[in-house]
């Protein structure tokens, strides 16, 4: 299934870095996110769309993960030529990721 069925998300920018906050729709989904939505997988997911590393932070209190996608915004802010210069919809792009609830 797609991550969309287990989580919601919001994203924003800091310079040339986009952040994606990924939030479990139910607390019991949070361990699935921690296990399957790793920085390595997110790096592969966004291959060709970002040119820097991916960092992941955990917020167990909010059942959320925060991803920093470096080099995602063609220079970011006013420099960027992208439609999504502020990284607003990397959130839903991450929700396309395939996950397996049974794993």
């Amino acid at each position: 299934m797609r991550l969309l069925e287990l989580a919601h998300a919001r994203s924003g920018d800091k310079g040339d870095t986009a952040n994606v906050g990924l939030i479990a729709l139910k607390p019991e989904y949070y361990p699935v996110l921690v296990k399957q939505v790793t920085a390595a997988r997110v790096t592969r997911h966004f291959k060709g769309m970002i040119n820097g590393p991916v960092e992941r932070y955990e917020l167990p209190n909010l059942h959320a993960l925060n991803f920093l996608l470096h080099g995602a915004l063609d220079g970011g802010g006013t420099i960027s030529l992208k439609t999504d210069a502020q990284g607003k919809v990397f959130s839903t792009a991450l929700l396309r990721l395939e996950v397996d609830l049974a794993k």
């Binding site: 952040n19 990924l22 209190n61």
Partner: peptide, 25 residues
């Protein structure tokens, strides 16, 4: 929660001139 994670860096270190806030608490 969506707003809390918006434009978030390291959630344990939200740095302002006034303090460092720990969003994981």
């Amino acid at each position: 929660t969506e707003q809390l994670v918006y434009e978030m860096g390291n959630p344990a270190e939200y740095i302002t001139p006034d303090c460092i806030a720990d969003f994981t608490t």
